[in-house]
């Protein structure tokens, strides 16, 4: 009897250890909702748009959110505004140079000031942000929400298990820091680019 109890306790402990292991979330969203929004003040009206070519993976452990690592990539060619002529200008070599530098990336190095309340964790994510071939270390305040078992429900297949990880945040960069028209037309187009994102990663059960 003792042996059976010990075996059961060992199995439970193993299951608990497995469930607490970091889970890899894929941010290439099957429903295509992931996007980064950008906003620059400009003459007449702001230049605002989105970039929806989001991919990447994040390793997240609900029991240890501070240990989160990962890398998010945005396809530069996916930048879109409501005027196609302006869109061509944005993607050109003078601005984003989507042909020469096709990826915009953020690689998480560490999570600091981690505060968890239920399924939601607020933290400062420090990592390497790369835009137009220039890499700088930045810190982005993020809100991470872990939704256990929500993957199947989202794709209308409740029988499929799996978790979702929603990451939200916003930050600003100076376009001159990344070689985007440094010092040019600052009276017409703001030198500051405001960025915000709300993206979801999926971890279906294997």
């Amino acid at each position: 009897m003792n042996t059976r109890l010990r075996l059961a306790a060992l199995l439970l402990a193993s299951a608990a250890a497995l469930s607490a292991a970091p889970v890899s979330f894929d941010f290439k969203d099957p429903k295509g909702v992931n996007a980064v929004s950008f906003h620059l003040d400009s003459l007449l009206e702001p230049i605002a748009g989105t970039a929806d070519g989001v991919t990447g993976t994040v390793s997240y452990d609900p029991a240890a959110p501070a240990a989160t690592t990962g890398k998010i990539t945005v396809a530069a060619s996916s930048l879109k505004v409501t005027n196609s002529t302006m869109n061509e200008h944005l993607l050109s070599a003078g601005w984003i140079d989507a042909a020469g530098h096709p990826e915009i990336t953020f690689a998480i190095k560490s999570l600091d000031n981690v505060k968890t309340d239920g399924a939601t964790t607020k933290a400062d994510a420090t990592g390497e942000f790369t835009l137009k071939g220039v890499t700088k270390e930045i810190t982005v305040p993020v809100t991470i929400t872990h939704l256990p078992g929500a993957f199947g429900k989202r794709i209308n297949k409740p029988e499929v298990g799996g978790d979702l990880l929603v990451v939200r945040g916003q930050f600003s960069i100076q376009r001159a820091d990344y070689g985007i028209k440094p010092g040019q037309n600052e009276d017409k187009v703001s030198p500051t680019i405001d960025l915000s994102f709300a993206i979801v990663g999926s971890a279906p059960n294997a």
Binding site: T82, N83, L164, V166
Partner: peptide
Amino acid sequence: WTKDRIAETQVDEITGIEY
């Protein structure tokens, strides 16, 4: 300025993400 496409905001029901 003139636009040749318009942006429409939608909400993902499960995650609450506005896209």
